[in-house]
Design a protein around this nucleic acid. Structure first.
Lengths: 206, 206
DNA sequence: GCGCAAAAGTGATATACATCACACAGTTCC
DNA sequence: GGAACTGTGTGATGTATATCACTTTTGCGC
């Protein structure tokens, strides 16, 4: 039997209503919104389907939105002058992705975002986020907590990068996201760890 | 003439009123508070003086506060099992420092904070921050923006670490904070860059 | 000013990782 | 089923950086 290694893991039945429920549960973890408040909040999101390989944010372009992943897997990445790619984040369901510097500072994107698998996302524009934050105190609260979580995670990853060798960082990543192993090609995992694909490959044999 | 390389850069006249003004200017950049609101906000801070070498947050201990630097320079750092130190942040005037994971999650500190020079800080407890965020919407707004800035900076630094060699990262740091060169010993700069002091030393000769 | 301790520089050697080159396996598409 | 492409494994070699050991310089208390 043929084993589809990079299975799409994609449910075509997915729709906006299920997405709404997933976002609702997600928000509820750190903010208290009444049902009407949440409905109003949700009305600012656009439900969007992307196919594997599609680009959502392009380096050098404008960034208008941030994206809440409902299904599938995105990556946000940077490509340097030697065309080498570095992955900042794999965005799995209930994760958010964007180029936050570009988004907040109205600058051109330095970071790209694209789809590793087919994906369903909810997009929210910068203008609408700021509007919602102004209008609903608890929304501002939610975004403060979410950003704080991201900040702590980024610091932790930086520390891990300074402190640990490739093998240790790889094991950490697999412990945190076991699903990645069969979902994304190894050279992308290498690009996340910041090593060459060859070095990553050799880890298994040692 | 003897040149005091690690000058204290310390103004004994500094007092709570000047600190208040510095904090006010800092907040005003991203939030709009009325004077009474700011006075109320400020009333939750404690003005504290520390001397060079004093520890503010100890690894393994409780973390109750975050610290706004008014004068001097702090460092937040992690020490690994081999007793090697990694510096997460140099905190200069108008910067904030704490172990944000421990502070938000009520866990024990993994990160320490101490004083590179004599320092004047304003401390704010976690409980008071949350209270103020609840009571004054603009305060929550301020902390969202501040945290977002930190998040973007941490991501940028992670990228720089994956992308650039030591020399480039050193030059970046010196460009961003020229004052550090004469303010902190070189082995601390090495600990920030994540390289050995020997390697940093050899950069100059090449 | 003297003496100790902390900081900084330097040489020799070891090592993790990058890079280049190539083989081959798996997937996709006609 | 075969071609083309993408992904993966592996050997040989080069290089940046760590580590260890030692010396020199600087800062600071007495």
């Amino acid at each position: 039997m043929r084993f589809r290694k990079f299975s799409l893991n994609f449910n075509p039945e997915f729709n906006s209503m299920q997405a709404k429920e997933i976002l609702k549960q997600h928000i509820a973890k750190s903010a208290l919104l009444t049902d009407p408040e949440f409905d109003y909040f949700f009305s600012h999101f656009k439900f969007q389907s992307y196919t594997k390989g599609q680009t959502i944010i392009t380096e050098g372009g404008k960034v208008e939105c941030e994206y809440f992943v409902v299904e599938g897997c995105l990556k946000s990445f940077y490509i340097n002058d030697d065309m080498k790619m570095f992955i900042l984040q794999f965005a799995m369901p209930t994760w958010w992705a964007s180029d936050y510097n570009a988004l907040y500072s109205r600058e051109k994107a330095m970071i790209s975002v694209d789809c590793i698998t087919n994906a369903e996302v909810l997009s929210l524009s910068n203008a609408d986020r700021e509007k919602l934050c102004r209008e609903i105190h608890q929304v501002e609260h939610f975004f403060r907590w979410r950003t704080n979580k991201g900040y702590v995670a980024a610091q932790r990853r930086l520390l891990s990068h300074m402190n640990n060798d490739t093998k240790k960082r790889y094991e950490e990543l697999m412990l945190q996201y076991p699903a990645l192993y069969n979902m994304v090609p190894k050279h992308l995992i290498a690009a996340y760890l910041g090593v060459s694909r060859e070095t990553l490959s050799r880890l298994h044999s040692s």
